[in-house]
Simulated scan of single mutants.
Amino acid sequence: MARNNEFQHLLLKTVQGNPELLTGSTGSRLISGNSFIVTETENFIAKEHQYESALLFPSGYNANLALFSTLLQRHDTIIIDEKIHRSIHDACKMSNCRKLKFKHNNCDHLESILKRQKGKVYIAIESLYSMDGDIAPLPEIAQLAEKYNAELIVDEAHAFGVFGYGFVEQLQLQKKVLATVVTYGKALGTLGAAILTNNLIKHYLVNFASPFIYTTSSHDFLWMSIFKGYHFLNENRKLLTKLQETIKIFRDQNIKSPSHENSPIQAVIIPDNDQLKVLRNTLSDQGFLTYVIFSPTVKKGTERLRICLHSFNKTEEIIGLTKIIKDFI
């Protein structure tokens, strides 16, 4: 209790004399929550990603919910990668569209499904998957979308800030990807998300997307932190090179992983929940913060240790981590 009182005293001392901390947007962006700062930040983001428009949201979940629940109509079909994020599943339920799944990163299976479709068709994928740490064959999927007159939507939550602005920008696929979602709560270390698309879809979402219309806008501090984050990325491009060097050191330790060799997310399969707990606790006792993914969050038999590598990780830390894992296995 004494420690709690000490914290409250410190918190009160911090906020006293800072009335700006009481400033909020006061409403949704269609009423009183819009501002010059959010509008200019969106214009900046669109230009950076080479899209016509950007629309900001307080979270990636909120952005996906708005995009998929509004854009897709009852008689449309969406074909999603079987390992796509839960937010897209939830949004599809809201849209009442027809939802089909293709095998993870399997272009042949995707094409076999596309061949049988009629009417408006969308394809939804992630560029970098958070559980396996593997990368989608984005150019091939973009070609299939074009071949079968389907619209492609890409979630870049885990690629943005790690692979530059993401793979859509890196591969210059903006004209082949109808909408890209980037989030700022991971590599950028802040909060929020943006839908990158054309002007028509942006205006449509502004006027018809319930998660946008009926959500109180975030305050300008958030939009300013995102703007600052972009400038930090551009001024510290060397960190991307340092991160790849760190990932290579990890991969050179010959830890078996289904993850892509350049991915900052490295999964180590330990197909037993109890064994995973032992390994996590062992690593924690040695000062390593890792995350375990138990079934049924992932399929039984694919339980895993999920390692997120950072540019600031030292070589000796990585070697120490991998030694414990190898000894355990």
Rank of each mutant, 00 (worst) to 15 (best):
I318L: 15
F227Q: 11
K242L: 08
N198I: 01
F102W: 06
H75F: 13
G119C: 02
G33W: 07
A91W: 01
D76F: 07
L173N: 09
F44H: 02
L110S: 03
E140Y: 07
L283V: 07
Q286V: 02
L12I: 13
E261S: 08
R98Q: 08
F221L: 15
L178I: 11
V38H: 03
P258A: 02
N281Y: 11
L10M: 13
L22F: 12
L191V: 11
I135S: 02
G164Y: 03
A66L: 04
G166A: 10
H310I: 10
S263V: 01
I84V: 15
G24H: 08
L200W: 07
I226S: 05
L240G: 08
L200R: 10
L289Q: 13
F208S: 12
Q117E: 08
E169S: 11
I226D: 05
G133K: 07
Q8G: 09
E245C: 05
K83F: 06
T216Q: 13
N18G: 03
L114Q: 00
F57D: 04
N198V: 04
F250C: 03
L233K: 04
T215E: 04
L188S: 09
L305N: 09
T282N: 03
E20H: 11
H219Y: 10
F167W: 12
R251W: 10
G185Q: 02
D274N: 15
S59R: 03
S32M: 07
S69K: 10
H158A: 06
E316T: 14
N105T: 01
I269Q: 05
F7M: 09
A150Y: 05
K120P: 00
E151A: 04
Q16D: 08
M224E: 15
Q50V: 05
M224K: 15
L152A: 01
P137T: 02
I265T: 05
K186N: 10
I255W: 04
Y214S: 11
K300N: 09
L144Y: 00
L171N: 05
N64H: 09
E140F: 08
K101G: 01
